[in-house]
């Protein structure tokens, strides 16, 4: 037990030098997307709900969201981030009841979630992006 072994411990942790395993990446992005869902998607949804209660405001919102502009991009992006939170959260819920907990299954479901979400994003882009 020398002083050397203690000094050799990595005390200066550089987050940019750590390569995260895919399930850790899912976990941290689940948190970030959750923060975004609370601070942006939720008030945005309330705002949209408020602005679709009359026929005129509904058609204004409808026209805005059907066209490709900075506001509709923001709205679709916000709901896609929320969808990401739901999909990664669903994966975590399955793991909580001990489904797909081993390394192989966890890696597979992590890639599946990212793949499905990218497909959903692509679909949204093709449907509303032009």
């Amino acid at each position: 037990m020398s002083q050397k072994t203690i000094i050799a411990r990595p005390v200066n942790i550089n987050l940019f030098k750590i390569r995260l395993p895919i399930s850790a990446l899912i976990s941290i992005t689940h948190r970030i997307s959750g923060m975004y869902a609370f601070f942006v998607t939720l008030p945005l949804s309330i705002f949209l709900f408020r602005n679709t209660s009359s026929e005129l405001s509904f058609s204004n919102v409808n026209t805005l969201l059907k066209n490709n502009n900075i506001l509709s991009t923001f709205v679709y992006f916000s709901f896609l981030v929320f969808l990401y939170h739901i999909m990664t959260g669903f994966r975590h819920l399955l793991m909580d009841i001990h489904i797909g907990e081993n390394l192989k299954a966890a890696n597979a479901s992590a890639y599946a979630v990212i793949g499905l979400w990218l497909l959903a994003s692509l679909f949204t882009f093709l449907r509303f992006g032009s």
């Binding site: 609370f38 601070f39 939720l42 309330i46 709900f49 408020r50 209660s53």
Partner: peptide, 20 residues
Amino acid sequence: LFITLSLTFTLTTLYMIWWL
């Protein structure tokens, strides 16, 4: 901050649903 926002979101939603 998030407690204040939570209360605001809840009260706004309930108000819009039942009184607006």
